[in-house]
Structures are given as C-alpha cells and as structure tokens.
Write a protein that binds this DNA or RNA. Structure first.
Lengths: 216, 216, 216, 216
DNA sequence: TATGAATGAGAATTCATTCAT
DNA sequence: GATGAATGAATTCTCATTCAT
C-alpha cells in the first residue's frame, strides 16, 4: 500500500553542517542570495522544478522562505536566476577545451565530481528540467548548441561553421553520453557506474570520445 | 491497495476490435484502464511525475478523473502501473539482442521512433522521474541493471556473471548514451540530433557501441 | 459570529419552504454557486474587497473554500460575478420607477430593508468598493449612469437625452443621497438614522427628492 | 499593543522645533511623522484600510517602512493617528457654520476641493473605512454625531438638545448627501457630478439643504 | 534616527482524492 | 461503471513587523 509512504519523503537529507563551514554572517544580503541560489540549483537539479518546493530550498539554504520572493520575485524567478550561473560554468568548461584529448577527461572529471553539485551535472540536469517557460527553453537550447559546437570545434571544426552536420551530430552524441552519465550517476545507484572514479571513467570515455569525434 | 491489481496485467486489450475502425465502447473497464495508462505514460515521460496532474492525464485519456483512483488507487499507483509496461518493453527489446551488431541498431531505432511515444524514450524518461517512492526506485534500478547486463552479455559476457566490472561499466556507458540521446531528442530541439533519422543515427552509434563493448 | 452558521443554512430561498426542516440538497452545484454568491455579496458589501477573505466567504456560505476557485476561478472572479446580480437588481428597481412620487419611496424602502443585505444597499456598497479591476470599474460606472438617467427620466427627461446637465446633476445628487443613507445605515449606528423605519424616512426623503428633481 | 497610544494624542508635534527655522530635512522625527501621516490619510482615504500596504504609505512618504512601527507602533496605530487629524478638520468645518445658508456652501466647497485630498472627502472616506477596531468605530460615530448635531443646531436646534428626532434625522440626511457626493466624486467618474465645480454644485445643494433643515 | 535584512503569520490557489448520485 | 461535487492538505506568495547595524 503506497499510502503508507509520506508524499514528501525526502531521500538522503544531508545534515546541514556540511553546507556551511561557517563564516555565517547574518544580515548579509549578497550571501543570503547565494545561499538560496546554491540550494536551488541543487534541488532543481536533483528533483526537477515541479517537485521542488520553495520551502525546501529555503530550509536547505537556512534562510526564511519569504526571502525568495524578496530576492528573486518568485519561484520561477529563482529558477531563471539559476540558469546564467550554470550557463557560465558550462561556458567556462567548454572554453577550457583545446583539443580532443581534453574532452573525455573533462567529461570524466565532470561526471566524477562529488554528487549532484558537480558543475557539469548541475548544469546538465538544470537544462533538462522543463519549467514551461519560453525564455528558459531558449536559453537552454543555446547552451546545448554552444556546447556541442565547442566540442565539434575541438575535433577540428571551427565553431560557428554551419556546415558538416555529420560532425555536429557526432559532437551531440558525445554531449548525450556526458548527459546520460551525469543523469545515471545522480539519480540512481547503478553500479559500477555510480561509484566509478574519474580515473576509472577516463579510459573508456576516451575511447568513446575519440571514436565519436576523431571518426574512429 | 494496488496489490490487488496484477503488475503484469495483459497489456493488449482488444485483439479483435482492431478490425473495427471505431469501437469506442463506453463502460469498458479494461479499455478505460488502457486509455489512462497510455496517457499517463506520455505525460509522465514528457513532463515528469510532479509536473503532471491527474486531471491532465484524465483529460488526455478522455475519461473522468475519479477513475484514476478507482483503477489505480492513486497517482502514485498509476505511475507504478506504468512501470511494468515499460519494463516489459525494455525487456523485450533487450531479449531481442543477440549480438553486438544489433545493439546500435536497436538504440538508433529506439531513438528515432516518433516523439515521446517511442518505447525507448518512454521507458527511459519514465525511469528517470523520481517519485520518491521506495518501490518504484527499486524497480527502476532493476530494469537498468538488467538492461545493462543484457548489453554486456551480448558483448560476450554471460548475463548474471558477477565479475568483470570493466565490461559492465562499458555497457552502462552505452546505456547512458542511449538515455542521453532519448533525453535530448524528447525535450529539446537540438539540431541536427533532434531531427536525425534512425538511418542517420545508425552509423555513428554503431561506431560508439562497437568501441564501448568490443573493447575498440 | 457568522462562523456558527450551519453548513446548510438556507439563504432565504423560498419563503414557503421554511415549513420544511430543510430541503438542502447536497451536491447541488447551482445551489452552492448561489450560496457563495450571496455570501460574497454580503461580505464584499460590508467589508470591502480587500478586507474580505475567501475563507470567510466560504465559511459563511457553508461550503469548502476550494469551490470558489472551482466555480468562479478566483476571488476576483467571484467579485465580478457579484456585479451582474447587483446590476440586475438596480436595473429592476430603476425600471419600476414611473413617476417622481415613487422615487423617494423606493429609496426609503431600499434604505430600510434589513441590514446590509437589503438589495439597494448591497448594490450600492458593492459598486463603491474598488477592486482595482478595469472591467469592474466600467461596469460600475455604467450602472450608476443608467440609474441616474432613470431618475432624470422619471423627473421628466427622456432617458438617453444627452442635454440638460442640470437635471442630470440633480438626479445624481439624489443618487448620492440614496447612497449616503445606505452607507451610514450599514456601517454606523448613527441614530436616529440607523434605526429609522421606511415610513419614518419616507417623508423627509420625499421632500428632498421633490426639491431635487421637480426643481423645487 | 496600540493601547499605549492615547486616543486624543496631540496632533501638533513640534512646539520647540518651530522655533528653529532650519528645515532639517533628514533625521527630523516630527517631519517624518508628518510625512507618514499625510501619505497614510491619502492612501487610506482612496483605497481603504485593508487594500493599503504600509510599504505603499512609506514609499509615498519617501521614508523607510520600519519607521511606521517606530512612530505609530503598527498599521492600526497609524490609522488611528489619522483620525484625530481629520476629526479636527471636520470640527473646524462644523464650527464655522453659523447659519443655514453656510451649510450648503460648505458642502459644495468641500465636495469641490480637489481630488481625494480635500479635507471633507478625506475625513468622510476615512470614517467610512472599517478597520474592525472598536475604538476607531467609536471615534467615527462621535464625529458623525457631532457633525450632524452641529447641522441641526445651525437649523435652529441647540446642540446637545436630546429631543426633536425629526430635525436630527433631517440633519443626518444632509450629512448622508454630503457623504454620497464625496464618495461618488472620489471613486467614480460619474458625470456631470464628478467634474462639477463648487459654484455649479452650490445652487442645487442649497435647495436641498434648505428643504431638509428648514422644513421646506 | 534611519535602514535594509529577516521573519512568521496568513492569504489565495491548486490538487489529489473521496463522496454521492 | 461513470460522473460531477466536495474536501483537506499543501504550495506559493504577500505583508506587517522585528532585528541588527
């Protein structure tokens, strides 16, 4: 009988102590804002937009719920505020890629970075949660496109080059792979993938990335 | 209590009525159940569990909302009832795989099958929506594990064999890839991936699957 | 207070049925709608839009709060739904006026009718409570205009006649008087006005109306 | 709570600071108090108590919200602080009335004074907004009673004389008229009343007042 | 004094679910 | 079996108020 399971059963509710090492200035607007943003990114990424309540976010951030309205206008506004942050991260990650060899390593590292807070996971998950908002949708698409173009470029094709759909498609398969890994690792305990270290992931990923982008 | 509903209730309803162009029976419990199940799978897959309302599902199915409670006890129950159906499909798909060469083709075909209703996508999306329910979680994990074991087996390793984590890991990367493709195609318009046909996907996927499972 | 009103309180539907303990059909949408509408009119009229909570209204109507959303979409929608009813009432009242002599009597009777529920008061108060809504504002204005035109007509001027602002102005002073009386009687205990009967009000009102409309 | 604020709190603030010619824009408690009071009167009068937020008032006054609590204890306290000011005004107006002829002129002038800030309107509106507060209610009643007694006195009856309800009733009808005019003019654009000048209003009002108080 | 930050109570609204035809 | 009505438990958001600087 499923009725015995509380509707808002929270799985792995991590102790708040890990969140703050503790400079803990109170009455610091900028800091409060960031706490909310961080908590929101984590929750939205792991649970999706609709399944996340603003109270959860506020509690995780250790601040009052009303401050979400104060600083971000609404839940929707908070979600949108999460996007640029993640976008920046993915941008930085993509920009760091110089050649083919670094891509697989980047994916491996991104995938391995601790739990749902790893920048890569956060971004990817975030981008894949629908909020029904037109603007968010567009931004999401832009990020994905930019990212895959960056991958294609690293494989020899200049970014922005419209042609060569084949290479683009292959780059997007690499993106899909990266995404799938992040997804499986963040929401299931599928072993051995879930516990694999960056080092363990690096080799098979390198093979795959090389195959995809170098054309074998 | 959902236990009274057999998990593996026959999924094909009217073998005879398919001859009739428009049966449209009212007061047909089995058919109503089916309509709800189909609508639920579509909605849950594309929007996620939390973002989907039972009213939406009922409306899409063209039946009264109260019937969800009647046939599936609860929203949660309806979600769980969706799982076995998808599980069966993925099971059938996995069982069909005899050798390495068929895997990439299966993934390609699964990915290409129209929209969010393609069996592969439905199953994958379904599995990735957290419902917070313990039982659903376990089922989901079982399916993913079974599926990746099947992939490993096709690559030479007997299913159920506990050893050889390396091959398992590689099989799970293939699963991740399949998942990522389904995800990108179902929730974004990322081109050229979003519009690629099964034929166009087949070649690069074959390269990747071969690399992953054949050990290059 | 009003919270003690039983859930099935009949709102003066049929005077004859008071003999019966209570017809009180449950699950009667139309009746529920009306209960809400009546309660809303009373509350909005006496407390104003902003000071009235939907819970209050629902409690006074003896029904569940959620039904306000169900039947009227929102609090705003409920308010707007109150307007036409009041508009109709004022229309009927205005149409009943044939000659000058009846106006003062109508006002007197309207003012005297019990408490804040008297149709005249309800309408007037309702019209004077701002809801911030553009549409409501326009409707309100139309009603007031129509009403004062009717008064002017009874005093000899054909309704719709654009000219003769003087008569219009005087008719609107009569409206103002009527309004002021309703206002004072419904929200203060200013004696002797508050307790005056229709009969007691009739004479001085007749003098005033005659003066205003008959041109002394 | 607000009980610590005496109902007849002195309304003129700075007996000492008036000696200093220095305007002292910032950090001037008395001035800040005044600014808040003025803004509050305007807002409460035009929107009602419940529909007005303290933030609105503070913004309109150009001061920080927290100062409302500081100077007036609460929103309720601010509202009550508005009353004596208006009461004084209406008192002054009533005291100025010496004979019948001045009444209609006073009402006409009061009604015509620009917009919602005219002393007459402000007072009237203010008195007619329920705040649910017992004490405010009583004050309001006192003002209305005092005012109508003043009118009755001007018509020949000594103020305070308990007898002659008929004259009192007629005086209150004049009050009702005055109120109704203020109401219609401040919250609707009902023409020609809304735009009538004091001069245009004077004549018909004189007729009405004479009729009411002089017994025709 | 003044101000921005923070808080808790309460508001409207949505939604899964149960009830009565 | 099916349907519309009804309900209570959340959820998001607003707002008066208090705190700390």
């Amino acid at each position: 009988m499923t009725a015995s399971i509380p509707p808002h059963l929270s799985t792995r509710e991590d102790p708040a102590s890990s969140a703050r090492p503790a400079p803990q200035r109170r009455r610091d607007a900028a800091n409060t804002r960031r706490l909310l943003l961080d908590a929101a990114r984590r929750r939205f990424a792991t649970q999706g937009y609709a399944a996340t309540t603003v109270r959860e976010i506020a509690d995780e951030a250790g601040v009052n719920v009303a401050l979400i309205s104060r600083y971000f206008e609404s839940k929707e506004g908070l979600f949108e505020a999460c996007l640029p942050t993640s976008v920046e991260e993915v941008g930085r990650a993509a920009d760091a890629v110089e050649d083919l060899g670094q891509i697989s390593e980047m994916i491996a590292r991104g995938a391995a970075e601790a739990g749902p807070e790893g920048p890569n996971q956060v971004m990817l998950m975030l981008l894949l949660r629908s909020s029904g908002d037109e603007r968010a949708e567009r931004l999401r698409l832009n990020v994905l496109r930019g990212y895959s173009e960056r991958l294609a470029a690293a494989a020899g094709r200049p970014a922005g080059d419209p042609g060569d759909d084949t290479l683009m498609l292959r780059a997007q398969l690499v993106l899909a792979l990266s995404l799938g890994v992040a997804l499986l690792r963040s929401s299931t305990r599928l072993e051995p993938l879930a516990s694999a270290t960056a080092a363990e992931l690096a080799e098979p990923l390198r093979d795959l990335v090389d195959t995809a982008l170098a054309g074998r």
